[in-house]
């Protein structure tokens, strides 16, 4: 019954018959979900609280694995392999698929060390290379001008919006292919939000982006594709302008017109 459009472009990820069950739950939180994610574009996931959109997002880098007992079924294809297998090298996967969280997660260290963190994990020790890549990442995240004179300062001294851009810089420094955004602006003021949205749109030239958002205007503003989820199912996936103007599913229409949710 779901309406899922075919994506003719190259795909970054493909979800096939995916089910996810939390350790403490009897029933799956995501049920038989199928969804293509287009490469170098922005896919937004919308839906009411508890619909499973964040759960789905957190499956793409298998961050659920930190908590024992969570169960995946089905497939998520990335570069022609199913990343849900036990053999999957999670460290390697998380280098290629980065994540930005709802609240800024600046580490309790300097601004420089925050951005260099992922690079150092990859074994980059050369000072010049580190400096270059930190600068490049901070520039891409549009925060270089604000922090270039205080790279050695504690990152927790930055404002919320700056911290979130720092986290984006930290994530793109390792040059991932996919970036997952989990409601990245819900803790920020409107001006910082606009800055982050602009940045996300710029980033899609280099990475494929999936963004979970509670804010439908945000989905409409930034994304190329939008998926509407409800009760653990993908109800509709379409090009953003079509989904918001001429939704194919009744549920989608009711949600975007504010009848529930």
């Amino acid at each position: 019954m779901a309406t899922i459009i075919d994506i003719n472009e190259e795909k970054a990820l493909e979800v096939k018959d995916f089910e996810f069950t939390y350790a403490s739950a009897d029933a799956p939180s995501i049920k038989k979900l199928n969804m293509p994610i287009a490469k170098n574009s922005i896919t937004a996931l919308i839906g009411p609280s508890g619909c499973g959109k964040t759960t789905l997002l957190r499956s793409f880098n298998r961050i659920h694995d930190l908590y024992p007992g969570n169960k995946y079924e089905g497939e998520i294809l990335f570069k022609d392999r199913n990343i849900l297998t036990a053999q999957e090298d999670l460290i390697n996967l998380r280098i290629q698929i980065g994540m930005i969280f709802q609240k800024p997660t600046a580490f309790p260290m300097s601004i420089y060390d925050n951005v260099a963190y992922g690079l150092r994990l990859q074994g980059i020790k050369n000072k010049t290379e580190l400096n270059d890549r930190v600068e490049k990442a901070l520039k891409s995240a549009a925060i270089w001008k604000e922090v270039k004179d205080r790279l050695k300062h504690d990152a927790n001294g930055l404002s919320g919006g700056q911290q979130q851009r720092l986290c984006i810089a930290r994530a793109i420094a390792v040059e991932p292919e996919v970036l997952l955004f989990d409601e990245p602006t819900s803790a920020l003021d409107p001006i910082s939000t606009a800055g982050i949205e602009e940045l996300i749109v710029e980033l899609k030239e280099r990475v494929s982006i999936i963004i979970v958002t509670h804010n439908m205007q945000q989905a409409a503003r930034v994304s190329d594709y939008t998926g509407f989820m409800y009760l653990g199912e993908l109800i509709e996936l379409g090009r953003t302008e079509e989904l918001f103007v001429t939704p194919k599913e009744k549920l989608t229409e009711e949600y975007i017109t504010g009848k529930f949710g």
């Binding site: 961050i63 390697n92 969280f101 609240k103 580490f107 309790p108 992922g118 994990l121 990859q122 930290r170």
Partner: peptide, 23 residues
């Protein structure tokens, strides 16, 4: 979320603990 952020950057558990959580 701080631990998750470090894991999401591909840090192994012992590094998450010694470099981020202890800090």
């Amino acid at each position: 979320t701080l631990r998750e952020a470090a894991f999401a950057l591909s840090a192994p558990k012992y590094k998450v603990i010694t470099q981020v959580v202890y800090c």
